[in-house]
Computed example of a mutant assay.
Amino acid sequence: MAHPQRAEPGPGQESVWDYPRPPRLEPVAERLRVAFAGQLIADSRAGWRVLETSHPPAYYIPPQDIRLDALRPAPGGSWCEWKGRAAYWTLELDGRIAPNAAWSYPDPVPAFRAIAGCLAFYAGRVDACWVGEERVRPQPGDFYGGWVTDRVVGPFKGAPETRGW
């Protein structure tokens, strides 16, 4: 299957088609926040983002900046060829439950050691996520967890017709 036509980034934007494969990990200077059940459950200025070809960035937040009392391990897991085995987390707060709302890499490969124990949240399974002051949109589809902002252009992998990209 041919790759889609890359959108040309404007000033201050990045194309996900310029991101590397294998992916790159980099620190995030901006504030990252996640809200669920009407409460801020994550708030960090020490986050990370993973940049991978065709995907909007996935943001990882260190555990000390997360309300861990609202999370419990979820069954199952998955395997990333670049990062290793992923574990999933269910959010439960004030009577609301969001199964598999977050994931982490408890013991990632050495290139991604910095995100060991950090959590990434699916923007579509929580109330809201922000990078800086911008509210993010979820990556298309139900498997990948990238955060779409006005700073990234696609098209993005994730919807069913993109599986062969």
Rank of each mutant, 00 (worst) to 15 (best):
L68V: 11
D69W: 01
R85H: 10
G47I: 09
E92A: 14
L91T: 11
L91F: 11
A98M: 04
I97K: 05
D69N: 12
D94N: 14
D69T: 12
R67M: 15
E52D: 15
S54M: 05
P57I: 04
R49N: 11
V50Y: 05
L51D: 10
W79A: 05
R49C: 12
C80Q: 01
W82N: 04
E81F: 00
G77S: 04
C80F: 01
P63F: 04
W82K: 07
L91I: 15
P57R: 06
P56Y: 03
W79Q: 14
A86L: 03
S78Q: 06
C80P: 00
D94Y: 02
W89F: 13
Y60C: 01
R49G: 14
I66S: 09
K83E: 07
P56T: 13
R85Y: 01
A70Q: 09
Q64R: 14
G77V: 01
L68K: 07
I66M: 07
P63A: 07
W82M: 05
S54N: 08
A98K: 01
L51V: 13
L91H: 06
P73N: 09
G47A: 10
A74D: 14
R49M: 13
G77Q: 03
I97N: 00
G76D: 07
P56L: 05
W79L: 06
E92K: 09
G84C: 09
E92F: 02
A87S: 14
E81R: 15
P62F: 00
W48S: 14
P62H: 06
S78D: 03
A98Y: 00
E52R: 13
G84Y: 02
I61W: 00
Q64D: 14
I61L: 06
R85A: 10
E81I: 03
R72H: 15
P99Y: 03
R67C: 14
E52V: 09
R96V: 00
T90G: 08
C80L: 02
Y88D: 09
K83V: 03
D94V: 02
W82H: 15
R67I: 01
G84L: 06
A70E: 07
S54D: 12
Y59F: 11
Y60I: 02
R67A: 13
E92D: 05
A74S: 12
P62C: 06
Q64H: 11
S54I: 10
T53R: 14
G95N: 00
A74G: 08
R49I: 10
T90K: 05
P56W: 01
S78M: 02
P63E: 05
L51E: 10
A86C: 08
S54P: 01
A58C: 08
G47P: 09
A74K: 03
V50K: 10
L71H: 08
S78I: 04
T90A: 09
P57S: 04
K83I: 09
T53Y: 06
P73E: 12
G47V: 07
P63C: 10
S54C: 12
W82Q: 12
L93I: 05
A87W: 03
L91P: 15
Y60S: 01
Y59L: 06
E92M: 11
P75E: 11
Y60P: 03
D65Y: 02
